[in-house]
Every structure is written in C-alpha cells, then in structure tokens.
C-alpha cells in the first residue's frame, strides 16, 4: 500500500550534498529515511522546520517535494527530484547512498 505526501529536502551548507529531513529531525542522505508528511498541517510544520534549519545555517534552500512511499521506498514525483536523490543517471555508482531510486 502506498502513501503520498511531502518530504523536506535541502542542500547541506558546508558541503552542498543533498539531504532529507527524517522523522527524528535529523538530516539524512537517504531519501527512504525522510519523514513523509501527509496532512497539510504536518507539511507546513515540516516546511517550518526547514526554515529553522536554514536560519541556523545547517542547510540551504530547503523545500518540500511531492513523493510517494511504497513498501518503505520513497519515490519523488518529479524527475528532477529523483535525480537529486539518486545521483546523475549517467554515472551509475557515483552515489551509493540510494542505488535503488528509480529514474523512470
């Protein structure tokens, strides 16, 4: 059974790498560990947490991404976000964090 909602992503300020905010309020490189907010209230709370982390200079450019979770795997709606999560589609193996994120 799949769930749809929004996840929060950003780039880490110090190294620029793509991160996702987990339910434990920790930034993770693994999209499948991201907190998926399904309700509107939860989504705006998530966005607010992103603003706080930006203000604290931990991450930059935080924003919500539409995504679907199926069997523990999170797949963003948009091709751009899938590439952000998985790494360049032309360099398989460069990013080992999320080898199974589908680009289709």
């Amino acid at each position: 059974m799949s769930e749809t909602g929004k996840i929060l992503t950003a780039n880490r300020l110090n190294d620029g790498l793509v991160v996702f905010l987990s339910a434990a309020n920790i930034w993770t490189r693994h999209i499948n560990d991201a907190a998926l907010a399904q309700e509107a209230n939860a989504q705006s709370a998530l966005a607010k947490r992103g603003e706080d982390f930006e203000a604290a200079n931990i991450v930059t450019g935080a924003y919500l991404v539409g995504a679907e979770r199926d069997d523990g795997e999170i797949l963003p709606d948009h091709i751009r976000e899938r590439i952000r999560a998985a790494g360049p589609s032309v360099h398989p193996g460069l990013l080992v964090e999320n080898p199974h994120v589908s680009l289709r």
């Binding site: 780039n11 300020l13 110090n14 190294d15 620029g16 790498l17 793509v18 930006e54 604290a56 200079n57 930059t60 450019g61 751009r80 590439i83 952000r84 790494g87 360049p88 990013l95």
Partner: peptide, 27 residues
C-alpha cells in the same frame, strides 16, 4: 557564511564571483 554572519542571499554573489555554484547534488 559558515558562521552565519553572511546570509545565503548576501553570500551568493560573492561565491558566484569565485565560480562556486550550488548545483543539484553539491557545490
């Protein structure tokens, strides 16, 4: 920038003038 004295908006033109972009995966 890392200490927060400069905001991202203020830092961006400075880093760009040194060729540093923030792209999809990293700087």
């Amino acid at each position: 920038r890392l200490s927060g004295e400069l905001s991202e908006d203020e830092f961006k033109p400075l880093r760009l003038m040194n060729g540093l972009y923030l792209q999809l995966h990293a700087y």
